[in-house]
Amino acid sequence: MSDAIDDYLDELAGRAHPGGARFRRVLAEAEEHLRESAASLRRAGMDEGSAACEAVSRFGPVEPLVAEARPSATVWAADAVRAAWLLGSTGLAAVGLSGVLAWALQAVAGARFVAGDTNGVTYTTARCADFLEYYPHAGSCSAAAALHHADEVVMYRVLAGVLGLVGLLAYLWWGRSRTGHQRVLPAVTVPAVAAAAFLLAAVALLLSSLGLALGERVHGEAWSGIGSPLSGGVVSLVAAVLAGLLVLRRVPRRTPWAEASRGA
């Protein structure tokens, strides 16, 4: 059975930002104070219900405590940096995975499929000489250019991926060493932003691949340069689905105070 003290604490919990250290401390101190005050009033002869009401009345309105339980701007900023770091590192790691996929596509379908130029692209003689110097076995300027571009796609993306992995490792290390860090952003924030960003990237990159495929068909050429956006689009789509599943797992279904009021 809930009493006036439970109702007061429920209101405090419902109006303050839950989860932070300040919130837990304010709630614990308020409850300890109210229970001790009510016990003192009962010892003075009050019945249990009246003592609880009087203790709440003496404690005063909930607003000053709600304001006190609110996390500071520093805590919000630190948590936002944490979330941005995680999102950025995950994004870079996904770019790295798309580099690996581009490398696999290159092995299977060739460099022209991954990063070949579209119709109408030409190079100067000097530039062609550069490409052929690096890829003497390519046989033609356009084939050497495609090999050069494909290698760049793979190398830069994999480097971004390594950077992302380092970022994720740093994030894990930071999370373990800073046990007192307050999480004030809802747990669903990072996966929700990631899902939205990856979905946007997937749509843009897959549409770009489709555009290249249809454009090249019109001109009757082999599908050139599709592998680059396609690899990014596929990885983005998979990442969007995984992030979406995390969102579904983390969406809060029941709040502690909703549970409490249900049980009351």
């Binding site: 300040r22 304010v26 308020a30 104070h33 003496r58 404690f59 005063g60 000053p64 405590l65 006190e68």
Partner: peptide, 12 residues
């Protein structure tokens, strides 16, 4: 005398 709850924000 003052509302007892106001002492906590001050202590913090």
């Amino acid at each position: 005398d003052l509302p007892e709850g106001t002492v906590y924000p001050a202590l913090h």
